[in-house]
């Protein structure tokens, strides 16, 4: 998975954050969680799934521990 594909996935996921259809929905899910809150809790869990997939299939290949050209005292160039 390329970096641009991950970007498109995240952008699509962000669009789902704007749940305008639940704005005035007072339904209680499992008897006590308002629909607007239940949606965003589920969204949080799906987010973890999204990043797990990115770590599995979209991890950049050019990021090992790079060869360092840093000075020995670590004070930058």
């Amino acid at each position: 998975m390329k970096l641009s594909a991950v970007l498109v996935l995240v952008a699509g996921f962000l669009a789902l954050h704007q749940d305008f259809w639940l704005w005035d929905d007072a339904t209680l899910v499992i008897g006590f969680v308002p629909a607007g809150l239940a949606y965003h809790v589920a969204y949080s869990l799906c987010t973890a799934g999204l990043w797990a997939a990115v770590c599995r299939w979209g991890w950049p290949s050019d990021l090992g521990r790079p060869g360092s050209d840093a000075p020995e005292d670590g004070s930058g160039q």
Binding site: L3, V6, T47, P66, G67, S68, A70, Q77
Partner: peptide, 24 residues
């Protein structure tokens, strides 16, 4: 949840890589 991880992925990883390379 989604954006912090996005920042870690798109910016943090690159910053880490550059930081280690140049000793920042």
């Amino acid at each position: 949840g989604v954006l912090h991880s996005a920042v870690f992925f798109f910016v943090g990883l690159r910053m880490w890589s550059i930081g280690v390379t140049h000793g920042y």
